[in-house]
C-alpha cells in the first residue's frame, strides 16, 4: 500500500530535475536530433529521425515538434516527451525548411527539389496549397500578423511574397546570390533576407516590399568569398541580430537600428543556424563541418563552450520544459 506514494514521490522528483530547458539540434548526416540541456550544456538525449533532418520547429504550445526529414520526403511530427514519431505530414518532395503560421496550424514548407512552397494543414494533415516559386526554395518566414509568408529561392535569387489569404504570390523581389534565411522583425514592418554567396543581408520595408538597406560583412584576414551569411536570430526587442557567416566560422552581431556590424565572434566550422535560450542570454549555433554547437554568451558576446553533437548539425530549436 506504500507503493503508490513512493511512485508519486519519484514522479515529483523527476519532474523537478527535468525542468532545465533544452535546445534541439538536427544532425543532417546522422539522422538524429541531439538534445542539449541549457543548464549543464551537455547532450542529454539523442533521438532518431527520418533521413537527413534539417528544419526543426516546435508547435506554439510545444506539444509536438516538426522535423523536415528531407530525404524521407516527409515532415515528421514527434512527441517531444517520448521521441516517438506520431505521424508524417504530406510535405511535397525534399522538404528543407519550414515555418509555422501564427495560427499554430498551417506549415509553410520549402520543397527544395521542386521549386514549390507547400502549405500543409497540420490538423487535417492535408496539403492546402502548393505555390510555384523560384528554384531551390529555402528560407521561410511568416509575418507576425500571419498575412504574409516569404519563401526565398536560392538559385532564382528572390524573396517571394505570398498572400496567406489567397495563397498567391503578390511580389517577387531580387536579392543577392543564394538567399538562405528570412525573418520579419519590428512588428512585421521589416524583413531581413540573408544571401549566402552574395555575402549580404537585404533589409526590406514590408509595406512597400522595397529594399531599405543592405548589410555587408567584412572580416579581417578572411576573404570575402568565405563570408557567407546563412541563419540569423534577433535578441530581445529586435535590437541586435546574430548572423551565422558559414565557412568564415564567425557569427556577426548586427545593430538592427543602425545596421552596423558591431562584432564578430569566432565559433565552430561552417556555422549554419541557431536559437536562443528562454531569456535570450545564451545563443546556440550549429556548426556543420566541426559537428558541434557553440554556446555564445549574448551579453559579453563571447563563445563560452562548444558541445559535440552528431554529424553535420543543421537546425536548432528551443524547448521549454515546464
Amino acid at each position: 500500500m506504500k507503493l503508490p506514494i513512493l511512485t508519486a514521490l519519484t514522479a515529483a522528483l523527476l519532474s523537478t530535475t527535468a525542468l532545465a530547458d533544452e535546445i534541439w539540434v538536427t544532425n543532417e548526416k546522422d539522422d538524429t536530433i541531439s538534445v542539449i540541456d541549457v543548464e549543464t550544456l551537455d547532450v542529454i538525449r539523442t533521438i532518431e529521425t527520418g533521413e537527413r533532418p534539417r528544419g526543426i520547429t516546435f508547435s506554439k504550445d510545444f506539444s509536438v515538434v516538426y522535423i523536415c526529414a528531407s530525404d524521407s520526403d516527409a515532415v515528421q511530427v514527434m512527441d517531444p516527451n517520448t521521441g516517438e514519431i506520431l505521424h508524417d505530414l504530406p510535405s511535397g518532395e525534399d522538404p528543407e525548411q519550414f515555418v509555422l503560421h501564427p495560427d499554430n496550424r498551417h506549415l509553410y514548407i520549402a520543397n527544395e527539389d521542386d521549386a514549390i512552397t507547400t502549405v500543409v494543414d497540420t490538423e487535417t494533415r492535408t496539403v492546402v496549397a502548393q505555390i510555384d516559386v523560384g528554384i531551390e526554395p529555402e528560407g521561410m518566414a511568416v509575418s507576425p500578423d500571419g498575412k504574409i509568408a516569404i519563401t526565398t529561392s536560392e538559385t532564382t535569387n528572390m524573396a517571394h511574397w505570398i498572400d496567406t489569404e489567397t495563397q498567391q504570390l503578390f511580389a517577387n523581389t531580387l536579392v543577392d546570390s543564394r538567399p538562405r534565411h528570412a525573418e520579419f522583425i519590428k512588428e512585421g514592418t521589416e524583413l531581413w533576407v540573408s544571401a549566402e554567396i552574395g555575402g549580404t543581408i537585404s533589409v526590406f520595408d514590408v509595406a512597400t516590399q522595397t529594399e531599405k538597406t543592405k548589410i555587408d560583412f567584412e572580416l579581417p584576414n578572411i576573404h570575402p568569398d568565405r563570408v557567407q551569411p546563412v541563419g540569423f536570430e534577433f535578441t530581445t526587442g529586435d535590437r541586435h541580430a546574430f548572423v551565422a557567416l558559414g565557412p568564415s566560422n564567425h557569427v556577426a552581431v548586427v545593430n538592427a537600428e543602425t545596421y552596423e556590424v558591431e562584432e564578430y565572434i569566432l565559433v565552430g566550422r561552417r556555422v549554419w543556424h541557431m536559437d536562443f535560450n528562454r531569456d535570450r542570454t545564451l545563443l546556440f549555433t550549429t556548426n556543420g563541418v566541426s559537428g558541434d554547437v557553440t554556446v555564445i554568451d549574448v551579453a559579453s558576446r563571447k563563445a563560452i563552450k562548444s558541445i559535440k553533437v552528431g554529424r553535420f548539425p543543421w537546425g536548432a530549436a528551443f524547448r521549454p520544459t515546464d
Partner: peptide, 10 residues
C-alpha cells in the same frame, strides 16, 4: 530551365 524559372517572375 533555371533561367526560365527566374525569368517568369520578371
Amino acid at each position: 530551365q533555371d533561367n526560365a524559372t527566374t525569368g517568369r517572375f520578371l
